[in-house]
Design a protein around this nucleic acid. Structure first.
Lengths: 209, 209
DNA sequence: TGGTGTGAACAACTTCACAGCG
DNA sequence: CGCTGTGAAGTTGTTCACACCA
């Protein structure tokens, strides 16, 4: 099973497994069966086994999975057993909220730089000790601070421009919070966090029920 | 095609179509073919036609779709041609960012109430004129202000409790920003905005390339 | 003629069912 | 014996190809 194409949905579920395994670890659960984990994650048990099978054999037949080991394995798969240097562009309300978000640090994402194009914001000192820098300096900052991930927290109309800057600077992935789809080369990964769209989806489900 | 079960992916794409049609409308484009719209939305043309076919026949054979009409039709389908009254729980950095987010208003979502459980925040006046109220008052607030959608912007460990409050109060849908999956009855719709998970997905794609 | 609407073919993902192993 | 790992079956979603109509 090692060389199959891995469904996107599998990766999403791996993240869910991590979260639930972390909880089990906190609760001092040593071993769990796919059946029990499935119930907790609200998926099918065979699905869990199949998802894991893409990456190896982590269970013990007749027993189940060792929580601690499985968690570590999945974190390895996802790349969560390392520190990720992150830069954020757009230091508005949303940008500040993200900079202060505890869960990023918990999973090893460290903000190493904050940039904006607004002169009024540049030079401003942030809570976490960072100083807002000019977006023009992005190429240097990315190289100097070894930044691999860029977050876009700007309005929709400037998002593409910022993305281009990030790509040129050499980041390997972009997390985009602007409500617009961005074009970037294949060499750079992208994930969109599109809450306006989620809101509209919600509106649909309420309307049509 | 009227009574088929509609794929979730179709709804998501309808939101994408809305965004692109709005853009076309701004650019004074009158008519567009599924082929051209598909290119702009980065999907397959047949996919667009099939998505629309779930809801009716909106095109003109040999011509294409009237941008204005199609936009209005899709907005009707999604429930975007009305005002939605929204309440938000958790007035931290993220909550404030959402309260000030321009795109919510643009699509007809109006914040009618902001609640928190922290006594230090209750009574505080917000930029948009709202005053932070106690979360205990939620049932009354929801009824009085006719609130249909609740946003959760609290930490993960309090999210389920807040969700329960929202459900009891009678909201019809919840947009959850807390990094935890919430259990609510079928009668209430839910959408999760899980950016920690998106970040982890990004980490995976960078690691494995 | 040109582009929609749609049945049929195809592809992707999920679940079942059970062999195989600790 | 029980639970994992996995081929096969089933289900869901996407794309093709063309009939049909303005």
């Amino acid at each position: 099973m090692k060389f199959a194409k891995i469904p996107m949905a599998t990766i999403t579920r791996l993240c869910v497994y991590v979260r639930n395994l972390e909880e089990l670890l906190t609760d001092s659960v040593d071993v769990i069966s796919s059946e029990d984990l499935a119930r907790q994650c609200d998926v099918n048990a065979a699905q869990i086994r199949k998802d894991l099978a893409y990456f190896g054999e982590f269970g013990v037949r007749g027993v189940g999975y060792h929580v601690k080991d499985l968690l570590s394995e999945i974190k390895d798969i996802l790349g969560l057993n390392k520190i990720w240097n992150v830069a954020i562009a757009g230091i508005g309300n949303l940008g500040v909220a993200l900079l202060n978000h505890a869960n990023f640090i918990k999973h090893g994402y460290i903000f190493m730089a904050a940039v904006d194009k607004d002169n009024k914001k540049i030079g401003q000192k942030l809570k976490n000790g960072l100083t807002v820098e000019s977006i023009e300096k992005l190429p240097n900052i990315v190289k100097e601070k070894n930044i691999e991930i860029g977050i876009i927290a700007t309005p929709a109309n400037t998002a593409q421009g910022v993305a281009n800057q990030f790509v040129l600077s050499g980041v390997k992935g972009i997390l985009n919070f602007a409500p617009s789809r961005i074009q970037i080369p294949e060499s750079c990964a992208i994930q969109n966090v599109d809450f306006t769209m989620k809101m509209d989806t919600l509106a649909y489900f309420i309307s049509s029920s």
